[in-house]
Write a protein that binds this DNA or RNA. Structure first.
Length: 565
RNA sequence: UGAGGGAUCGUCUAGUGGUAGGACACCAGACUCUGGAUCUGGGAGCGGUGGUUCGAGCCCACCUCCCUCAGCCA
């Protein structure tokens, strides 16, 4: 951590905290929480929330809990709990011994519900789900009171107890708050507090058959954990009066404050759990950790560093206006991070054979190469060089376009860390007409480091020695969606986003060649393939077959020139 | 047509009555044994109309547009 770093601008939540500290609200404590429901994998949008909550806690000498909001056994699973814990930890955050579950509070919540009934603030309602909806009214039409609204406290207590005892079928009864059926805020029209769900809960098993609703459970969870600032996303804004109602009617001291911020949207991808699930279940991607997925697991496998994700989240800011962040900003963050950290290596994605005719056939030289020009402490390594090498197919052009600096008949280029070579000719495949091999001569005086090396040539190419190179597979990823925006057409049926899937989001190259120093590279290790991009060794990699994921390409000004023409 | 929110360069975000700033993206140039990185420069913005004020992105009024809400999901 660099203390010289320009201080992140104070966001509106930090301003609220500053204000609260000034007035000694919550005795100056700052306590937040990240409360995921264990019903799916975390994605980059969650990362924003995680960084916000844990970050605010850290900045303010406060605490941040990890809490599973597991109040709906029908949708949740331990599989997700494990992955969420793993992901938050991987991002670099620590909740100490404060890992909590809403389900641990069920008994206390039940007791509070009983006191709500006793206070005449809640009642058991026998209306069907459909009837409840009809009674609720609409935007323009006030709601009607349930015929069960004025049951006696005794009857409500009895019925609620029997709900818990399992006497009634799913959906037959609910516990409702008694608030105001004519409220302009639909959330306040006697919202459901408890429903009957005869489902096995992943933590409490069959102990319960009634489960609290989010609006009732969440303020209590926050209260139990002495949360001071309960940060959530914008769609809960309308629920804040209800959040406050629960805390208020129960007369709970030092209540937490709910604060809403805008969730993250990213261009060229999808973020909703529903859509991500579709991609996985319908086989558009290989799984939740497919490197094209915006999930934490996907980004991790792709090769993103936790630092780059945290940095991204810190830099996009926090506000209440809906936003759509350009995915290129995320890509900038990983390039920036890896530029400083990733060792440089040479890897040829589309190999083209090149013979240096005047180089002795039995000679092998060890060429010295910097591991990272951005990091002098990274050291150097030796790379074998010989008469037959492979270069990138696109680095030779028999009829070079304008501004093309690379190899072409009669032209000279430098081989990185080796010699200047001159193209003397090429051989075509008789059948396909494709260039099969290129013939060159080299200038022995031009070896890197020698006096004769000072000669300037336009281009520098990466290469690998044919006899020494390792075979490798490279998986090149591109954006999942062609279209910029998932937000704009959101209303359209989901087919819409399937139509926008990028057919070229994955390209698998099985005949790549990489320098021998990569032998045994461990899964997860990251490299810059010079002039090509940043790559990460995939878990599929084996000793006899290296597999690399392209994290992100290098910025490519030649590609831009090409695009213009 | 109810309620709650929101509108500042293409994008994200500062600015809290006193010269609209940064980042990404884009464009141009320098440098380069990575067409990378780095460096320099550039274009680009206050939704609209009135009002208050010496002075308004900021305060007031009206308007426009966008988002969220009618789950026994969270």
């Amino acid at each position: 951590m660099n203390s010289e770093e320009p201080k992140a601008t104070v966001n509106f939540i930090q301003e609220i905290i500053n204000q609260d500290k000034k007035t000694n609200k919550h005795q100056g404590r700052v306590h937040l929480r990240f409360p995921p429901e264990p019903n799916g994998y975390l994605h980059i949008g969650h990362a924003k929330s995680i960084c916000l909550n844990f970050g605010l806690a850290a900045q303010n000498n406060g605490l941040c809990n990890l809490r599973f909001d597991d109040t709906n056994p029908n949708k949740e699973d331990v599989e997700y709990i494990d992955s969420i814990i793993n992901d938050v930890r991987w991002l670099g955050f620590d909740w100490g011994d404060r890992l909590f579950y809403a389900s641990d509070y069920f008994e206390k919540m039940y007791d509070y519900a009983v006191s709500l009934i006793k206070a005449g603030k809640a009642y058991v309602c026998d209306l069907s789900p459909d009837e409840i909806r009809k009674y609720r009214g609409s935007f323009n039409e006030t709601g009607r009171e349930s015929p069960y609204r004025n049951r006696s406290v005794e009857e409500n207590l009895d019925l609620f107890k029997r709900m818990r005892a399992g006497e009634f079928a799913d959906g037959s009864r609910v516990l409702r708050a008694k608030i105001d059926m004519s409220s302009p805020n639909l959330n306040m029209r006697d919202p459901v507090l408890y429903r009957i769900l005869k489902a096995t809960h992943h933590r409490t098993g069959d102990k319960w058959c009634i489960y609290p609703m989010y609006d009732y459970a969440h303020p209590l969870e926050d209260y139990y954990e002495k949360i001071t600032h309960s940060v959530c996303t914008l769609e809960f804004e309308d629920h804040r009066p209800l959040y406050n109602w629960v805390l208020n009617v129960l007369n709970l001291p030092d209540p937490p404050q709910q604060i809403e911020f805008a969730r993250l949207n990213l261009t060229n991808t999808v973020m909703s759990k529903r859509k991500l699930r579709r991609l996985v279940e319908e086989g558009y991607v290989a799984g939740w950790d497919d490197p094209r997925m915006p999930t934490i697991a996907g980004l991790r496998r792709r090769g993103y560093t936790p630092e780059s994700i945290r940095n991204f989240c810190d830099r996009i800011g926090v506000s209440k206006s809906n936003s759509l962040v350009d995915v290129r900003f995320l890509e900038h963050c990983i390039r920036e991070d890896l530029n400083l950290k990733a060792p440089r290596v040479m890897g040829v994605l589309y190999p083209l054979k090149l013979v240096i005719d005047n180089y002795p056939g039995d000679m092998v030289e060890e060429m010295e190469s910097e591991n990272n020009p951005e990091d002098p402490t990274a050291g150097t390594r030796k790379i074998p060089f010989s008469r037959i090498i492979y270069i990138e197919r696109e680095d030779f052009h028999e009829d070079p376009p304008k501004k093309y600096f690379r190899l072409a008949p009669g032209r000279e280029v430098r081989l990185k860390n080796a010699y200047i070579i001159k193209c003397e000719g090429f051989v075509r495949d008789e059948r396909t007409g494709e260039v099969k091999e290129v013939h060159c001569s080299y200038d022995p005086e031009s070896k890197s480091g020698k006096a004769g090396a000072k000669r300037k040539v336009k281009g520098t190419l990466h290469w690998v020695s044919a006899d020494h190179a390792l075979k490798a597979e490279a998986r090149l990823y591109d954006h999942l969606l062609l279209d910029q925006n998932e937000g704009a057409e959101e209303q359209e049926e989901e087919k819409d986003f399937i139509n926008q899937l990028n057919p070229n989001s994955l390209k698998v190259l099985t005949d790549c060649l990489v320098e021998p120093s990569l032998a045994g590279a461990a899964p997860g290790s990251r490299y810059q393939f010079m002039r090509k991009g940043y790559f990460c060794v995939d878990p599929d990699s084996a000793s006899d077959k290296l597999v690399f994921n392209r994290i992100v390409s290098l910025r490519d000004s030649w590609a831009k020139i090409l695009k213009e023409n």
